[in-house]
Amino acid sequence: MTVLAPASAEPHRYLQAQIRWHGLEIAFWIAALLPFLLFKTYLVLASQIAITALFALSLDLILGYAGIVSLGHAAFFGLGSYTAGLLAKLGWGEPLTGLVIAAAVAGLVGYAASLVIARFRHLALIMITLGMGLLLHEAANSASWLTGGADGLQGVRMWPLLGYFRFDLYGVTAYTYSLIVLFLVFLASRRLIHSPFGLSLRGIRENPVRMPAIGAPSSAHIRKIYTISAAVAGTAGALLAQTTQTVSLEVLSFQRSADVLVMLILGGAGRLYGGILGAIIYLVARDQLSGFNPQYWYFWIGIMLIAVVMFLPNGVLGGLAWLRAAWRGKTA
């Protein structure tokens, strides 16, 4: 991970320079609208990519900016899913309030978990997040009276979005809804990490011992970002439950935690766009490869992951940044 070297001596100017929008960023978000015009039959896939991207973004907030590696982040995704799904099942199928309540529940549990998490680092931290995730998965399996167990939650019926747009077979509503939520959360995250709070988080990531010494409350910061990240993961889970109107134990699985971690590393952690790009690359590749070769597609995914590590260290974005720097260095 790169160590920050502020270009300007004045901190607020540095922060302002960081917060300015780059042309490529604007192009990216405009490109996100392209599926509506060019790939109209891929909107369901696009919505699931946007949801996964949001989930990866939530992991990036803790991994990329606070150095917390989690192998159990699906716990919060799943909490969001079940909250939204259960609300709809019990008769409150309104999506927006469902989304907010799901985020709140996931955030609340995230805060409770952060009290434990903040005390550990390294392998112990990874294994504790893994263990808590698996415990929740088993608990959901046991509580089949509530969750529907292995068959999944039955009877999730969503009301139309804003009382007007129903979740259609083509996925127009699903993608519009997921993309808007992704964009809004992204905007908020972008502000957050370029704030003084975001800077001190990166300080903790780079040197967890020194930050308290200069007066930054490490543990409090970690608890805060972990809670925010859990709420965002819960939002993503709720979106999936609402747009697909299905919830199953799989939303809490180790596989989901591991997949999102792979996507984030693939795209490049600590760059906000890394998780989004990773989700796009991974899921588009998976969709195309498994279309051609339903039985062995993951062979090619594996080759792709190995190739990225070998040729683009620190993920696709990290590797591209490194290549660009190398290129500039050569021409200059």
Partner: peptide
């Protein structure tokens, strides 16, 4: 179409895509 295991969200998407 491959669901990769238990994945109702993917199965439903695949069904939608197959239809539309």
């Amino acid at each position: 179409k491959d669901t990769g295991g238990i994945a109702p969200d993917i199965a439903k998407r695949l069904a939608q895509e197959l239809v539309v």
